[in-house]
Computed example of a mutant assay.
Amino acid sequence: MTTTNFTLVRNPFGRLVLTRDGVVHEGVVPVRAFPIQAPDDGIALVNTDGAEVAWIERLSDLAEDTRSLIAEELGGREFMPEIARIEAVTSFATPCTWNVATDRGPTSFVLRGEEDIRRIGQGSLLITDSHGIHFLVRDLPGLDKHSRKILDRFL
């Protein structure tokens, strides 16, 4: 269902409203098909029942106002800090606490087990903390030597 022939506005309650072919869908939510590998390609707009009501091949195909509404909504729903450096870990046995520098500032989290570190793509990792928050290592080879050495102990 590829489409860009719709209008998208935010109602007074802050919910997105999509109108297409005279049908109004209130409370639509954008969902990325490939949030890490291709975040700006393949976005579904789904209704409150979870049914897809529109498909966007590329965000760049949309008008600026529609694109900014979708980006704003996605930004409010998705929280995935990107790890820039691993400062320290409390232990090489799990569970352990990691102190990291991210694109959103320094933080610490608890890693429950090695299985919470998953490879995605060629040189990327997805690390899930004990609260279910995902941390992204986008460029494993690009990390500093200290950070890679720590990660090697867990991989």
Rank of each mutant, 00 (worst) to 15 (best):
N99Q: 14
V46A: 13
R77Y: 01
D21M: 12
T7I: 08
H146M: 05
L59C: 07
I117T: 04
L140Q: 14
T66C: 10
A93M: 11
L155S: 08
D103W: 04
V100W: 01
D103R: 05
A93Y: 12
I83W: 04
F6I: 03
V28C: 03
R153I: 11
E26G: 07
L16H: 00
G142T: 06
L69H: 01
I117A: 02
R138A: 13
V100C: 04
R148W: 09
Q122M: 13
V110C: 08
L8Q: 00
S68W: 13
I150L: 15
A51G: 09
L151M: 06
S108L: 09
T102H: 05
S60R: 14
K145L: 15
L74S: 01
L126P: 00
V110L: 11
P39H: 04
V100M: 05
R118I: 09
V53M: 06
V23P: 06
L151S: 03
R153N: 15
W55A: 10
D41I: 14
A88M: 05
G14Q: 00
R32N: 06
L8Y: 00
V89F: 10
L125W: 12
A88K: 07
D139E: 11
L59R: 08
S147L: 03
L136H: 15
I43V: 11
C96S: 12
L111C: 03
G132Y: 03
R104V: 14
V100K: 01
R148D: 06
A93I: 08
T19A: 09
R32Y: 04
M80I: 12
Q37V: 11
G142Q: 04
S68A: 15
L143F: 07
N5T: 09
V24C: 10
P39G: 04
A84S: 08
T128F: 15
